[in-house]
């Protein structure tokens, strides 16, 4: 398959220009930074809180921004133009993810700087973060493809925040309801389990289980996203 960086960059550059004039999305995307500033006022932070913030970045910045810009392409009937152009599905999806990647990295870096979180340098951790990142990008794309408007996409964000953003708080709630135990298979928890394990000095092979759960989620959501995208290509809208 031929692969045009020029096309990818053109889509990314267009999104960047567009975002600079889109205050609603821009401010939402940067809320995790505000949250980080507020939490750091209190005690030295337990790493639960660090991961609460990291998950928040994934949801508020990665998923929301990605969902919002895809939903807007649909709402304004511009996605069709991209689909009808010679740009391939891969080029379009990568181009449309560029901005979310950039802003996720910026917000994450800002948050970590503010909270003073120190990474344990472990390959497993970086791999887990990378897989999660791709997973959330795909999740945002999926959200954008399913929502009809930007407003709808931001409404769907609320339950997502609850499930993915609450972190260990939700784990405690779950422990009271045995029927909800399947929720422990959510990728954000496995990221957290992995971090705890790595922090405790455990080796790579002891966290492969967590990595596999996250990877399976990533593959599943990516697959679903491409399926929905293909369906959208021939929906006539």
């Amino acid at each position: 398959m031929s692969f045009s960086l020029k096309r990818i960059y053109a889509i990314f550059y267009k999104d960047l220009k567009d975002l600079m004039k889109n205050m609603f999305v821009l401010t939402t995307v940067l809320t995790p930074v505000l949250f980080a500033v507020l939490t750091v006022q209190s005690e030295p932070l337990h790493f639960d809180v660090h991961y609460l913030i990291i998950n928040l970045v994934f949801i508020m910045t990665t998923v929301f921004l990605q969902g919002a810009i895809i939903a807007e392409e649909k709402e304004k009937n511009t996605l069709r133009g991209l689909m009808m152009s010679p740009a391939t599905t891969t080029e379009i999806l990568i181009g449309k993810s560029g901005l979310s990647v950039l802003l996720t990295i910026i917000t994450l870096a800002l948050c970590i700087r503010i909270t003073g979180y120190e990474f344990v340098y472990a390959n497993a951790l970086f791999l887990a973060l990378f897989l999660s990142f791709i997973l959330y990008l795909a999740m945002g794309t999926l959200l954008g493809l399913l929502a009809r408007t930007v407003v709808e996409a931001s409404l769907v964000l609320m339950p997502l925040m609850f499930v993915f953003g609450l972190g260990s708080l939700l784990l405690e709630i779950i422990s009271d309801y045995p029927s909800l135990v399947f929720l422990e298979y959510l990728p954000n928890f496995h990221l957290q389990f992995l971090v705890e394990a790595v922090d405790a000095g455990k080796a790579f092979r002891e966290v492969t289980g967590n990595l596999i759960v996250i990877a399976l989620w990533m593959v599943f959501v990516c697959f679903l996203t491409v399926m929905v995208y293909r369906k959208r290509e021939v929906d006539g809208k």
Binding site: K14, K17, D18, K76, N77, G81, K237
Partner: peptide
Amino acid sequence: TDNSGLYNRLSVYD
């Protein structure tokens, strides 16, 4: 067609 949208916040040139 009716579903050929433009990017509202960008200029004609962009």
